[in-house]
Design a protein around this nucleic acid. Structure first.
Length: 432
RNA sequence: UCCUGAGUAGCUCAAUGGUAGAGCAUCCGGCUGUUAACCGGAGGGUUGUAGGUUCGAAUCCUACCUCAGGAGCCA
């Protein structure tokens, strides 16, 4: 935007002034001797009114030729007007077409998801999509601000890794000069190293899972924030998670009311997000599911429908803790009270959204960790640096990972997480 | 990988064995306060691909392709 242009978001402060607007035509309606031009500039949408009787012939004629998504410079006077969609409108004095747009593919009518995703580079111009991405921006900032204020150091994990972090899921293989490398599926192992350096650390970046998952809850490339804390137990990390989630939800409510309104999100459930969150053990969850007639077997992880049934009982996020060790990663510490269980926890979002956070206490004993690596049939050599963390001043430590897109899907109250990232990477979708 | 469903105009859809249509978008005309504006007119099609059944296929059958939802797996 040029220096002398005014942003639409700031128009209320300029009532009565003649201003310059730089943006794109969102929609146009004409009524004979009137033209209504809806102009957007990324900060909002405003209606510009051209009156034939008050304008030179050429200017009014030009208004009638502006097509959807053409870029324009409009000069005019800011006025309050109840008839305008935003309550403020511009009496148009002049208009310049900067770049014409012909046959913009996304018309102001219904479209299917496949078509819209093909047009994702243009779809993000629409009001709803832009609102979701602005909330994403605020969520990311809130995560970082909250952790920074709590004494965490950002220490990002690498994206190229020599081997699996968790061994179980499918990795993207790539060439690293003369050897094979993989794209990271979690910064977890590296975070344990940085936590031993800084006490509290976190990484925030993209992760990659080459799973053939094809549901509304999966992306191939997604973002996670993963804090790790030295000397913290499972109970400590659950307190950290609930304070963190309360904080970031509060920030989104504070900064993004308008966008939540565009999305028609009922904010009442978000306003109930106050720590402490309920805690329920895996054992009790399994019993609860069976009590409701769900054919759930002890030892399994929860499926999507299991999670939905569980969330029905709560009006705020809640923890499920102490999952069977077999369904969690090798580095999870066993429950000293029951060796079948791990000191792990998931945070499930209410309203049927399900898991947004996974965390727990890590195995801090060198011998037991070596045992786990063997059990999982992982190459011991690749983990020597990780085992060093237990050789040189090992401490109890815990951490968690929060999926940004899943959290956003819940905050925005939308159906599918593909709308929460600017350019989603999914099974069968690498473009645009 | 498996299960279910869908592919017809640029987009969203109708046409259930008998002349392929509507709304929006585009173009032309009309309208001095429109709110996904409205009214009139025009152009726009190898019905996903290949084969088969039939006098006749968008429609029935077979295979394949693409997409969507779900399962498994996960954040």
């Amino acid at each position: 935007m040029s220096r002398n242009a005014t942003r639409i978001g700031a128009l209320r402060e300029r009532i009565g002034d003649e201003i310059l607007l730089e943006g794109w035509l969102y929609n146009r309606r004409s009524s004979g001797k009137l033209e209504f031009l809806l102009v957007r500039d990324g900060s909002g949408i405003v209606q510009c009114v051209a009156v034939k009787a008050e304008l030179p012939e050429g200017v009014f004629a030009r208004c009638a030729t502006v097509t959807q998504e053409s870029s324009v410079r409009v000069t005019g006077v800011v006025r309050e007007d109840k008839r305008a969609p935003s309550g403020v409108e511009i009496s148009l004095r002049d208009i310049e077409i900067v770049g014409a747009s012909t046959d913009f593919p996304i018309t102001p009518k219904e479209h299917g998801p496949s078509f819209l995703l093909d047009q994702r580079h243009l779809w993000i111009r629409s009001q709803r999509q832009a609102a979701v991405l602005k909330i994403r921006h605020t969520l990311v900032q809130a995560c970082r601000d909250w952790l920074d204020a709590d004494g965490f150091i950002l220490a990002d994990a690498p994206i190229f890794t020599p081997s699996a972090c968790e061994g179980t899921t499918t990795l993207f293989e790539t060439q690293y000069f003369d050897e094979k490398a993989y794209l990271t599926q979690s910064g977890q192992l590296y975070n344990e190293a940085t936590a031993m350096a800084f006490g509290r650390s976190y990484c925030f970046g993209p992760t990659f899972r080459a799973e053939k998952s094809k549901t509304r809850r999966h992306l191939i490339e997604f973002w996670m924030v993963e804090p790790e804390v030295a000397f913290a137990t499972l109970d400590d990390v659950m307190v950290l998670i609930e304070r963190f989630v309360e904080g970031i939800v509060g920030r989104v409510l504070e900064k993004r009311r308008e966008e939540l309104k565009i999305l028609e999100r009922d904010v009442a459930p978000l306003e109930r997000v106050r720590a402490p969150f309920p805690r329920v053990s895996y054992d009790d969850s399994a019993r609860l599911l069976r009590g409701k007639g769900v054919p759930f077997e002890w030892g399994n992880d929860f499926g999507a429908t299991d999670e939905t049934v569980l969330t029905e009982g709560y009006d705020r996020p809640f923890f499920v803790h102490r999952f069977p060790a077999a369904v969690k990663a090798f580095y999870m510490k066993r429950d000293p009270g029951d060796d079948r269980l791990s000191l792990s926890c998931d945070l499930l979002a209410p309203e049927g959204y399900g898991e947004i956070v996974g965390g727990g206490e890590r195995e801090d004993s060198l011998d037991r960790l070596v045992e786990r690596i063997h059990e999982h049939k992982l190459p011991l050599d690749a983990f020597q640096w990780y085992l060093d963390l237990r050789r040189y001043g090992s401490v109890p430590h815990s951490g968690f990972g929060m999926g940004i897109e899943r959290t956003l899907t819940w905050l925005c109250g939308i159906e599918h997480l593909r709308e929460t990232i600017p350019f989603p990477r999914m099974l069968n979708r690498l473009r645009p």
